[in-house]
């Protein structure tokens, strides 16, 4: 258990040892801030609904950039050989790396708490709807991180890892538009697998077991597959 935090701390620190983390943080938060003030100014509504939808959309593009190095870089530099020959289980390695990325993503997401505080000071928002929305987008982002960690474990090429993540995330996010062209069970299936369906419920203030199970099971499946990928050394 302790090793999970040791690996996570090392991962988190590694983000801040390169300029990419600062660039991502500054650019992303600046864009979020800009949209937040424009949306509040235009809509005059005490809600975070629109800014959370924008955050959700932007995470599709940002998260693969944050996770692409997680395993791919280790394989590229050969440090994976050090990592997996220490007395550390593959599960601990995967969880530690996932937690490191998750913490960085949470840092990025934490800006939404400030938006809530600002709205709370100047208006009377529906507190639970906002908190449900933040929790939903966070959970969705954690799933994106898990997908990024998985695709990073498939290759030693960081760009390829990011592209694979994009393909999966685009399918999960934009698949909802296909429901107009297909009907019946296919549409039901697409609606269930689309991440947008579940995130929308959270943003609307609805916390359903189905949505929570969707995200948690997707995270679990991705991490299990990552562990198998690391174990099988298929990327050799």
């Amino acid at each position: 258990m302790k090793k999970i935090f040791i690996i996570a701390a090392k991962e988190l620190k590694s983000y801040f040892r390169s300029p990419i983390a600062y660039i991502v943080l500054v650019i992303t938060i600046s864009i979020f801030n800009m949209f937040f003030f424009v949306l509040i100014n235009e809509g005059q509504e005490a809600t975070l609904r629109d800014i959370l939808t924008i955050m959700e959309f932007m995470f599709i593009f940002i998260i693969p950039l944050l996770t692409m190095k997680i395993f791919a870089e280790e394989k590229q530099t050969g440090t994976i050989e050090f990592l997996v020959t220490t007395p550390t289980t593959n599960t601990v390695i995967v969880l530690g790396k996932f937690l490191g990325s998750l913490l960085f993503f949470t840092l990025l997401m934490s800006v939404s708490i400030f938006y809530y505080i600002i709205i709370e000071i100047f208006a009377s928002p529906d507190k639970w709807t906002i908190l449900s929305g933040i929790a939903g987008i966070w959970l969705e982002g954690v799933m994106f991180v898990a997908i990024g960690v998985l695709t990073s474990s498939w290759t030693r090429n960081q760009i390829l890892a990011a592209i694979t993540s994009y393909v999966i995330l685009f399918l999960l996010f934009f698949s909802l538009s296909f429901t107009e062209h297909v009907g019946g069970n296919a549409a039901i299936l697409i609606r269930y697998f689309s991440t947008k369906t579940h995130a929308e419920n959270f943003i609307a203030g609805l916390i359903n077991t189905v949505d929570v199970v969707y995200y948690l099971s997707a995270i679990f499946i991705c991490l299990t597959l990552t562990r198998l990928s690391v174990e099988n050394r298929l990327w050799r």
Binding site: S14, R17, S18, T77, G78, T79, I80, E81, F82, L83, T85, T86, P87
Partner: peptide, 18 residues
């Protein structure tokens, strides 16, 4: 077994930014 072994791979497994 891994606790008993010290290993230096062909390419030293180092994190350049650390």
């Amino acid at each position: 077994v891994r606790r008993k072994i010290g290993y230096l791979p062909e390419t030293p497994p180092l994190y350049p930014n650390m």
